[in-house]
């Protein structure tokens, strides 16, 4: 059974169809990338899954139950977590406190600091744990937010351009982080533009174009697909 499934999902703003009848399924344990040119509807698709936007029609199923009408925080409590494109961190609070807030509602108080230290190490942020989060470098902010998203121990992690603005080294390290999470059983769905990164992590790739599923397959199949190259990869992968 798919962990996440959308059936005939529709959303339009005024006359503009941002997602049109999207049928999409994600298997548990999969690492899946969503690609597509700007305006393809990737971010809107994420917002629909998270409940930030309500669809005009269609259904979203998560882990076997219909969550189409659930509030965002209810979806998070069921095991979905997200890392936003622009780092969504608490800038005026310390790195440690950022993680504490993410961990506190499901980790016992006595275990809290041990768990924070473990996460800090995973995120390579141990040395900076007392820094204000706003003072971190851009890449570190991205990692901190990945850490906050992972702290919830989600079954499904959504990542909106997790490597945006990172150096190639940071991007590669992020890929390794995500692969480790995936080995531990987490399902990942990422919007990503960096094709090298997609090649590093993705088992399956879905191409969105004008709000519709345009193509689906392994990265090699997608790259070999001339229709895809025509709309997108031709200029992006050059």
């Amino acid at each position: 059974m798919a962990i996440l499934e959308t059936r005939q999902l529709n959303k339009h703003f005024g006359g503009l169809h941002v997602t049109g009848n999207v049928d999409f399924a994600l298997e548990p344990g999969e690492m899946h990338c969503l690609i597509g040119p700007n305006g393809a509807g990737k971010s809107t698709f994420f917002r629909l899954i998270l409940g930030e936007h309500m669809p005009d029609s269609g259904h979203i199923l998560y882990d076997g139950s219909d969550i189409t009408r659930n509030k965002p925080f209810e979806r998070i409590r069921r095991g979905i977590s997200v890392k936003f494109q622009v780092p969504g961190i608490f800038k005026e609070l310390s790195v440690r406190q950022n993680l504490e807030i993410a961990l506190q509602h499901h980790v016992a108080p006595l275990m809290l600091h041990e768990e924070i230290d473990r996460l800090l190490e995973f995120l390579k942020l141990s040395a900076d744990h007392m820094q204000l989060a706003g003072n971190l470098s851009h890449g570190q902010k991205q990692w901190l937010e990945i850490g906050m998203a992972v702290a919830l121990k989600p079954k499904l992690l959504l990542l909106d351009e997790p490597t945006a603005g990172m150096t190639p080294d940071e991007t590669f390290a992020t890929g390794e982080m995500l692969q480790e999470l995936n080995r531990e059983g987490m399902t990942l769905l990422a919007v990503e533009h960096d094709m090298a990164f997609v090649r590093q992590i993705a088992h399956q790739v879905t191409v969105l174009h004008f709000g519709k599923v345009f193509a689906q397959g392994t990265i090699d199949e997608i790259v070999a697909d001339e229709r895809v190259t025509a709309i997108y990869l031709g200029e992006a992968d050059a």
């Binding site: 998270l50 925080f73 969504g88 608490f90 005026e92 406190q97 504490e100 807030i101 506190q104 509602h105």
Partner: peptide
């Protein structure tokens, strides 16, 4: 307290706080 943590988290970034599962 934990409650206070969530209050300041909402001040800093309401969307992130909600996406950590808090009914902000």
């Amino acid at each position: 307290s934990r409650f206070g943590n969530v209050i300041v988290a909402i001040r800093e970034n309401p969307l992130r706080a909600e996406m950590l599962g808090y009914d902000i």
